[in-house]
Design a binder for these strands. Sequence first.
DNA 1: CAACTTATACTCAGTCGTAGCATAAGGAGA
DNA 2: TCTCCTTATGCTACGACTGAGTATAAGTTG
Lengths: 313, 313
Amino acid sequence: MNASDTQQRHELKVDLVAVVAAVIDGDPRALTIRRGSALPAGPFELGHRSLQAGLRDWVEQQTGHPLGYIEQLYTFADRDRIAEEHARRAISISYLGLTRDEWSASQPPRDWQSWYGYFPWEDHRAGAPSIIADAILPHLKAWTEEAGGTAREERRQRIAIAFGVDDRPWNEELVLQRYELLYEAALVEEALRGRGEEHTPPVPGRPMIADHRRILATGIARLRTKIKYRPVVFELMPPVFTLLQLQRAVEALAGRLVHKQNFRRLIEQQELVEETGETTFETGGRPAKLFRFRPAVLMERTAAGTKLSVTRA
Amino acid sequence: MNASDTQQRHELKVDLVAVVAAVIDGDPRALTIRRGSALPAGPFELGHRSLQAGLRDWVEQQTGHPLGYIEQLYTFADRDRIAEEHARRAISISYLGLTRDEWSASQPPRDWQSWYGYFPWEDHRAGAPSIIADAILPHLKAWTEEAGGTAREERRQRIAIAFGVDDRPWNEELVLQRYELLYEAALVEEALRGRGEEHTPPVPGRPMIADHRRILATGIARLRTKIKYRPVVFELMPPVFTLLQLQRAVEALAGRLVHKQNFRRLIEQQELVEETGETTFETGGRPAKLFRFRPAVLMERTAAGTKLSVTRA
DNA sequence: CAACTTATACTCAGTCGTAGCATAAGGAGA
DNA sequence: TCTCCTTATGCTACGACTGAGTATAAGTTG
């Protein structure tokens, strides 16, 4: 009805937004601009050969970083979320990119920000962060009380699943669901904007412009899901590495520790890597064998079914 | 470079395209318009509250079918693929919708077309279709020969993975990869358009306008992947059903048969369904118990991790 | 040399996927 | 009515994989 009656211009602004991930100094990071307040982004223009090409252009232009592997994430267009930023309505097509931070001294340093500055509740490598029990759950509980009838039970249920309440396991993949819950409960800064209540949000975690933090959450969730069944960690690792370094990278992304022995067994039985024949003494204790990814794996990554399940520590 | 130099209008046409799936008479089908030649679609307009709302409007307007569950699929913008259809460049945001075909006699009949009319090579319920060995693989083999050097080996590899050559298993999820291979090898009608070579394509399978068949492939692939870890079949089933009916629906979607006993065990141990207490005699042999989905499952479907693995027959 | 760190090998129980055997309960035709 | 066919449903066995623990090897540091 409204679609056909309303005769308006059918043209819209289309933005490309990039979540570019790398593991640096044992931390999972995202490439940002404006001192961490935004993701690299720019409009899709007629000069771009494709969406991907446009995205690469913008990222390289804004950060100086060339992109390797990228994949599409999601297309957003919620009027509510963007209304305050742009008078006009816009569509954001988001992508996930994976790289290493291969900076040369001649390049300006890039603005890599740790994921967990934006999502402090997502890093469970040293156990569940205390802010979950101290700040998040109490506020969410209060939020369930606000609702009545079936809505209250539904909220309780969503919270229990997302944050692993009452003996439910923590599921590291539900990054977006958790952020959305906090947004709906108005516990993050983005939810308070333009409401005249610009007070400090009750839950720590750095905000971003527009819905960039939501897009970042989408990218993290996708990556956490994907490492389990596709060999994508490769894109984030240097050409040669030890198994523990690989494990630390996976742990950084997943935000949880894994069982070392089982991790190695998994890696080796999947035939993802091969020994280079050399060892490194830089790791502290007994020298570790160095590995590289098997070329066949790099080729098959499009379709091969590889599982790199994040087993518990 | 090109992005910043080219000062062009930053507005684009944005189309919404729907893959709406249902299982009717044991066949997986898609809701189409124009006698099966196109998917329901229309431009995203300023009057639409959201992308999803816009999509619902268009589908209902064009087919009379209201949509229940929908999820976003992918956003396409390849200039090559759409060039012939629209002079102007357009972006297509595609969605997957799941429904039952609850037609009332007063409504006009909807245009439900079987998936396998468009992708005859995807239905392995009665074994691998003969066209794979008879038509597809020979043509693809010829196509590998056209390439030289590493490209040839890469093509061979992709074909082997996608179609399950040399003892590799058939992977029903690779619907899109298979279609893309056939497209690249110019074995489907869409690839021949506007090239002046409008001859009959070498591989059977009904074409669609623009890149709608590619979008349909994307939707089928997504659904085949998703039934394995999320309880989405529900959306496609009537409120009450026998376990064999549920199995047949899964088989129709996956395009392959499953082991009956294991399927039942899986379903029951996941506690997805509960008995209604009644039985039906309409199935031929021994009367079958009737089941319904447990209400809790319908609620949790957003986040619950349910596996409905398609075990072999 | 002792204490500590990291690497790596091996074991074991529980779960899950695959597959086969067996029985129950209806209908159709001899 | 009896037999055969069809579908439904229960149960068992086995191998692969997962989660978690034990033990040993080979370095560095004080």
